[in-house]
Amino acid sequence: MKAKNINDQDSRFSTWKIHLTVATTTLIPAAVGINYIAKALAEGLKLPLWLGSLGTFLASMLAGPTAGAISGFINNVIYGLTLSPVSTVYAITSIGIGIAVGILFHRGWFQNAKRVFVSAIIIALVSTIISTPLNVIFWGGQTGVAWGDAIFATMIGNHINIWLASFTDEFVLDLLDKFAVAYLAFLIYRQLPQRMINYFKDNQ
């Protein structure tokens, strides 16, 4: 495995650049496609995870938080328009994930395995905080994952506040999912050819 410093402190991309270059314009659809495929693979392997933000993580790492946020947003919009209409509203969560990953990566929180652990917790928290109100509004607090909903049902049955029950349901699932995705993204990024990383950074 070719080891390299995955976070160049002298990153050549501007963290908050909104202008879309041609390179970013072609990177974003690829990231959306990776999200789709990762989710399909997770379902195929019957993993208790979504993995549907892997492309968003990689886009944020390669081209900054804006690219990641747009990838996440478009992913949910396209997913919503083709497979599950309600998932469109979770585009806000994906934007949050993209921004969080971009900032953390830019500040060196994807440099080594220990730091990735902390990043995964922060990203899971961001995702949970944004998703919980949406879960309560659209699904009465549930997440749609059987064992997470079993926790939710137990807490509701014990007269615990719906917001706290929904937050716990979402956080337990998000924590596991974001750990898996963060480490996968970390390992995959280390395997990317340097010319590829440079291409997306140079074309910002």
């Binding site: 659809p29 990776i34 291409y199």
Partner: peptide
């Protein structure tokens, strides 16, 4: 999760390569 890597790494590299070509 480990078994995903031999599939995901070549797939992602190929996908990004194609997007560079497209760009």
């Amino acid at each position: 999760l480990r078994s995903l890597l031999p599939i995901m790494i070549p797939l992602i590299i190929k996908t990004f390569d194609q997007s560079i070509n497209r760009s």
